[in-house]
Structure formats: structure tokens, C-alpha cells
Amino acid sequence: MTASGGECVTGRKLIPSCNVLWGVAPGAHTESRGASALAAFERKTGRTQAIYHAYHGGIRQLFPTEQEIAIAHQRGRHRILFLNWKPESASWAAIAKGDRRTDAFLDRLAVHIKKTFPEQFFFAVHHEGENDVRERVGSGYTARDYAAMYRHVINRLRARGVNNIVSVLVHMAYIKHAQQSWFNSMYPGDDVVDWIGFDTYAYSDPGYGHGDFAEVFNKRIEGKRGWPGFYTWALTRHPGKPLMIAEWGVWSSKRNTRYKVDFYRDLGAEIRRFPKIRAMVQFETPHNQKGQDSSVDSTPAALQAYRNLGRLPIFQVAVTP
């Protein structure tokens, strides 16, 4: 269903009535991340971002912060917050069993959210959890521990009246992890997962992660330890869930500068082959932990291609209360 005049709008669980939400985690791994980084990103790319993505951890800082609330409420630029929270005060198993300090924080968080931010927002609990799985008895970090921890967090917040969180289960989209026997045990349950997200990146130089959009996002592996691709996996195991590319980007290369331009240019057509993808969130950093650069303006040609991509009709969705 679309609004009058055919406009695409956000609805229940922030699922757009049509098209794909467009967003960014700006200034990642830099001191300028936040409102200033978002403003700079929107200036250079020539459009308002429908989603603003930020990260939190531990049990001290409540969120959304004042700055994040201001970003969501900026006059004339309605945005959806997408907030990651990584619990670090106890093991997954301990949190699932009701760790006292974590529960106390969740209770404070519930009060804070109800008081300061009634709008729907995306909320991820410990994104890319598979990277921290320790699949041995008693580790506190098994795949089933993760699922139980995730359930506990979402259910505790909801039980305390936080009904505006739209939960996102965010995977790494790393095939080596997905092929493990424990991978599907990470799923917390349809009742506590609203969206399924994947973090996936394209690499400008040949090798893993190099290719077109389908190769990067839905890479398949044939053989005894085959893998159908993340899109195909989600479509098969969780057909009722909208999908989000929760982090994406193209890592730059001085040797192959044309690759990023071509990837941006072709993505607008290629994404139409994946209709369950309803949101894409750019992760922009001049340097990650490995020194890799995903800046959309690494070259003038890349910036123009990204600007053109963001202007396509498929990425236009009005954020509505």
C-alpha cells in the first residue's frame, strides 16, 4: 500500500510500503562520527538519509542520546534511528539467566526510551554475534547462548513497555561462519526478530568479496559444505522477515578505482533481483581496523556514481511517524 500520489512511506515495523530505505553510519572509526559526520555525508551525497546508524556498548550510556534524538527530529529531515547495542557486562549465558547489572541497565533504558523517544527505531542486539561464538560447553558464548541472550534483552524491554523497538538480527554474512553446524542455532525466534540484517562488503581488488552485487551479497558455495547464499538462506528459513543490508560499502583500491564506480552504477538495477531487501545502510569510514577505506568519495567519479545511485526512485521512501 502506498500513500496518495504513489509515495512510498514507512509503516508498521518500519517496513516501507514500497522501495528500499537508504541510510548511513557516517564517520565510522573517526572522532567526527555523529551529527557533524552525518551533515558532511549528506552535503557531499546530495540527499537526506532515511536511516542514521550508530553503535553503543556496555551498561553506562543510555540511548537514544540527545544528539541522536536531535538527528531523528531535525526539521524537514525525518530520519529513522538504527541503534546497535553490544552488552559487555556479562556473558551471553549470564545475561540470558538474568544478570543483575545488565537487567538493571535494561530497566533504566526502558524508562529512558519511554520518556524521550516514542517513535519506532531499529535496534540490534550484539550485531555480528557469530564472530564471538565459542561453541563449547560452559563458555557462556555458544550459539544457543546468543539466541537466549537476544530473547532476554528484547523481552525484558518489551515487558517494561518499550513497544517502539524494531528488532534486527544482524549477521556478518561471512560464509565460513555460516557453514558451521551451530549457525542456525543463533536464531532467537520469530517473535523477537522483526528484521534480518547482513553486514557485507565489496572489495575492489580480485578475491573474496569481489564481483557484482549478487556475488557479494548472495555468494554461493557448491559441494559437500555448500552454502546457498545469505539472501537465499534468509528467504528459505525466514520467508516472513524483511531483509536489511545493515552495513555495506566498497573497500577502495588505488589499483582498481573503476570497480567502485561500476559497483555503484550497477547496484540500482541489480537490487531489483532481491525484492526482500527493504533497507540498505552504508558504513562509511576512511579507515577501519585494517586500514581499509569505504568512503563514497574516494574518487570524484565514485562520488558522482554514488550520488546518482541515491537519487534513483527505488531508494526514495518518506519516513513517517
Rank of each mutant, 00 (worst) to 15 (best):
T142V: 02
T142P: 00
R144T: 15
D145I: 01
D145Y: 03
D145E: 01
Y146I: 00
Y146W: 08
A147Q: 03
A148D: 10
M149T: 03
M149F: 03
Y150W: 06
Y150V: 05
R151N: 09
V153N: 12
V153D: 01
V153R: 02
I154R: 00
I154D: 01
N155F: 04
N155A: 11
R156G: 03
R158Q: 05
R158F: 07
R158K: 09
R158V: 05
R160C: 00
G161M: 08
N164Y: 14
I165H: 03
I165V: 14
I165N: 04
V166F: 00
V166W: 00
S167K: 04
L169P: 00
L169W: 13
V170M: 03
V170E: 07
H171N: 13
H171G: 07
A173I: 01
I175W: 00
I175T: 15
I175S: 10
F183P: 02
N184W: 01
M186N: 07
M186W: 02
M186C: 02
Y187L: 06
G189P: 03
G189S: 09
G189M: 02
D191Q: 15
D191M: 11
V192T: 14
V193C: 06
V193D: 01
D194V: 05
D194G: 09
G197C: 06
G197R: 07
F198G: 13
D199L: 02
T200Q: 12
T200S: 13
P206E: 13
P206C: 12
G207S: 13
Y208S: 14
Y208L: 08
Y208V: 13
G209Y: 13
H210Y: 15
H210K: 05
D212L: 08
F213H: 08
F213Q: 09
F213S: 08
A214V: 05
A214E: 11
A214T: 12
E215W: 11
E215L: 11
N218L: 01
K219R: 14
R220A: 15
E222A: 12
G223Y: 11
K224P: 08
G226R: 12
G226S: 15
G226Q: 11
G226D: 12
P228H: 10
F230V: 04
W233C: 06
W233H: 11
A234S: 13
L235Y: 09
L235T: 12
T236P: 03
H238C: 00
H238Y: 15
H238N: 10
P239K: 12
G240W: 01
G240S: 10
K241R: 05
K241N: 06
P242F: 14
M244P: 09
M244H: 09
I245Q: 10
A246V: 07
E247F: 10
W248M: 15
W248A: 07
W248S: 04
G249S: 01
G249E: 10
W251V: 11
W251Y: 15
S252V: 10
K254Q: 13
R255Y: 06
N256M: 05
N256T: 08
N256S: 12
T257I: 08
T257M: 11
T257C: 05
V261Q: 10
V261S: 06
D262Q: 14
F263H: 08
F263V: 03
Y264W: 14
R265Y: 10
R265Q: 09
D266Q: 13
L267G: 02
L267T: 13
G268K: 02
G268Y: 11
G268I: 05
A269R: 06
E270N: 13
